[in-house]
C-alpha cells in the first residue's frame, strides 16, 4: 500500500435544476491522496468550493460501501468509472494518475431526468418494481421456511440476480437507454424461485410493460450494462426475461 498525492483536472457537468440547461465547468485539485475514494475526492472539491463561496457540486451518495446504489456518475465515458464491478464510492484514486483530466457527467437517459448537477431522478426503476417485482404475500400466514425447499444452486443463481443495487448504471451506459438488465434481474430472481411461480406470467408482462411505459429504450444486446454493472449481473438475466416474456405473451 503506497500512498501518493496526485493533481487532477476535473470537468464536471453543472446544472442548476431540472429546467436549466447545464454545461461543463473545469476545476483543478492538488494533492489528492491516492487512498481517497472518488467521492472523498469530490468532498475535497466541495469543501474548496464552499470556502471560495462557490456552489458545491451536488451528487447523490449514502452508504459509501457499494451497496445502497445511491451514488453514480459517468467518469470519462464509463458509468461508475474505469474499475470493473466497482461503484463510484468504492473507486479509489489510486486508479488515476497525476495530470489526468476526469470528465464527470450525470447518468443520462430520457427516463432519468437531471435534478441538479450529477443528481438524477431514477424513480422510474421503482415504478418497474411496483408493477410486479414482488411475491404477493401478506405479512403473517407464511409457511415454515423449510417447507419451501430450494436447491442450493438455484438459491445461488437467484442470489446472483438479486444482488442488483438499483443504481441505474445499466441504463446510463446502454447506448439505447434500456433498463433490461435491471428488470431482467428481478424477473429472473423470482422466476427461478418456487415462491415466484404463481405470478410468473403476470409479473413478466407487467414489468416489461411498465419498463416500456417509462421511456426506456430497447435492448440490442450491446452488453454495456453487464460490463459496467457494479455487481457483475449477467445479461443471462435478460435472456431469461425474454424467455419469460415470450412464454407469457405467446402461451398466455
Amino acid at each position: 500500500m503506497t500512498t501518493k498525492s496526485i493533481d487532477l483536472s476535473l470537468e464536471i457537468w453543472r446544472q442548476k435544476d431540472s429546467k436549466a440547461t447545464g454545461d461543463f465547468e473545469t476545476y483543478t485539485l492538488q494533492n489528492i491522496s491516492t487512498d481517497m475514494s472518488f467521492l472523498e475526492m469530490l468532498d475535497v472539491l466541495n469543501e474548496n468550493l464552499t470556502r471560495e463561496g462557490r456552489d458545491p457540486v451536488a451528487f447523490d451518495h449514502d452508504c459509501r460501501e457499494g451497496i445502497c446504489g445511491m451514488c453514480g456518475a459517468v467518469v470519462n465515458g464509463i458509468a461508475h468509472g474505469p474499475e470493473p464491478e466497482t461503484t463510484l464510492c468504492q473507486l479509489h484514486m489510486r486508479h488515476f494518475n497525476s495530470g489526468d483530466t476526469l470528465v464527470i457527467e450525470p447518468f443520462r437517459s430520457r427516463a432519468f431526468p437531471i435534478m441538479k448537477d450529477l443528481i438524477t431522478d431514477r424513480s422510474a426503476l421503482d415504478r418497474i418494481i411496483q408493477a410486479g417485482g414482488y411475491v404477493s404475500v401478506n405479512t403473517g400466514g407464511a409457511p415454515d421456511g423449510n417447507a419451501i425447499p430450494i436447491p442450493s444452486t438455484t438459491a445461488e443463481l437467484a442470489m446472483d440476480a438479486a444482488s442488483c443495487i438499483g443504481c441505474g448504471a445499466c441504463v446510463a451506459s446502454c447506448p439505447n437507454g434500456a433498463a433490461m438488465l435491471f428488470t431482467g434481474a428481478k424477473i429472473s430472481q423470482l422466476s427461478l424461485l418456487s415462491q415466484g411461480q404463481p405470478e410468473r406470467k403476470e409479473r413478466a408482462m407487467a414489468m416489461v410493460t411498465a419498463m416500456d411505459k417509462e421511456g426506456f429504450g430497447n435492448c440490442t444486446n450491446e452488453r454495456e450494462c453487464e460490463a459496467v454493472c457494479p455487481k457483475g449481473i449477467s445479461i443471462r438475466n435478460i435472456a431469461i426475461m425474454n424467455r419469460e416474456y415470450v412464454k407469457a405473451s405467446v402461451l398466455g
Partner: peptide, 18 residues
C-alpha cells in the same frame, strides 16, 4: 431512432466499456 431518443443527450466522452 427510438433508442436514440431514449438515450437522450449523449456523453461528452464517447467510449465503450465492452
Amino acid at each position: 431512432l427510438q433508442n436514440r431518443k431514449a438515450r437522450g443527450q449523449g456523453y461528452k466522452i464517447q467510449t465503450r466499456a465492452v
